[in-house]
Simulated scan of single mutants.
Amino acid sequence: MKKQLFSFFAMLVIVSASAQKLKIQEGDYNNLKGIDTYSLVFDYTDVQIPKFDNEEAFLKDKMDKREEKKAGDGERFKNDWFSDRPNRYHPKFIESFNKRFDDGVVSVTEDAADYTMKIHTSKIYPGYNVGIVRHNAEIDATFTIYKTDDPATVLFEGKYKDVQGYGSMGYDYNSGDRIAECYAKLAKNIANVIKKKVLK
């Protein structure tokens, strides 16, 4: 039984690592050499939510269920869903990325810079935590790098699928906390690629 459990969890780790592997869409690592600062742009256009036709359908479902239990909770959920982006996800990404580099040799910021890194989130699965059972949140995201004054010329573009967030020791009852950990993991993945492929 122990061997079966070990094999099962080992398979989960392998599948997770495979899912989070970078798929290069365009460009070359050499194009990024010498860049030390990226201006971040986050894009959620046409983001998909698994099991729902679109984001609007997801929000309606979650808001209706909350309104049935307590008036006003539906609108609060919607407000949190959007405010979590600048308040949770973006700071988490920046913190996770920047701490990977000593002396700020490479960094990201939401201030203006000569080069831009656009993070386009195409899927958000918020996961769940109901105490006795939980599931990590997941995101799909494409990051595109270009000179800020020439966005049409892509220097590098890569995509990650099913990036899962781990953290909070299981106390991530708020979907915003779970999803924020996905952005921390995404930032770690991108930073590690830059360290290994660009700064080598």
Rank of each mutant, 00 (worst) to 15 (best):
Q4N: 12
S7F: 09
F8N: 10
F9P: 05
M11Q: 11
S18L: 14
Q20T: 03
D28W: 06
N31V: 09
D36C: 11
T37A: 11
D46Y: 15
I49T: 11
K51P: 05
E55P: 04
E56C: 11
A57N: 12
A57G: 04
L59H: 05
L59F: 03
D64H: 13
K65M: 13
E68Y: 06
K69G: 09
W81S: 07
S83E: 14
R85G: 03
R88T: 06
Y89M: 11
P91K: 02
I94F: 07
D103K: 15
D103M: 08
G104R: 03
S107F: 02
A113Y: 04
D114V: 09
M117W: 05
T121V: 03
G127V: 03
Y128D: 06
N136Q: 12
A137E: 02
E138L: 01
E138F: 01
T142G: 10
T148W: 07
T153G: 04
T153K: 13
E157K: 15
G158Q: 03
G158F: 01
G158K: 04
D162P: 00
V163K: 00
Q164Y: 02
M169G: 13
G170V: 10
Y171S: 11
D172E: 03
Y173V: 05
G176P: 07
I179H: 02
I179G: 01
C182L: 01
A184H: 03
A184F: 00
K188H: 07
I194D: 04
I194H: 02
K200T: 12
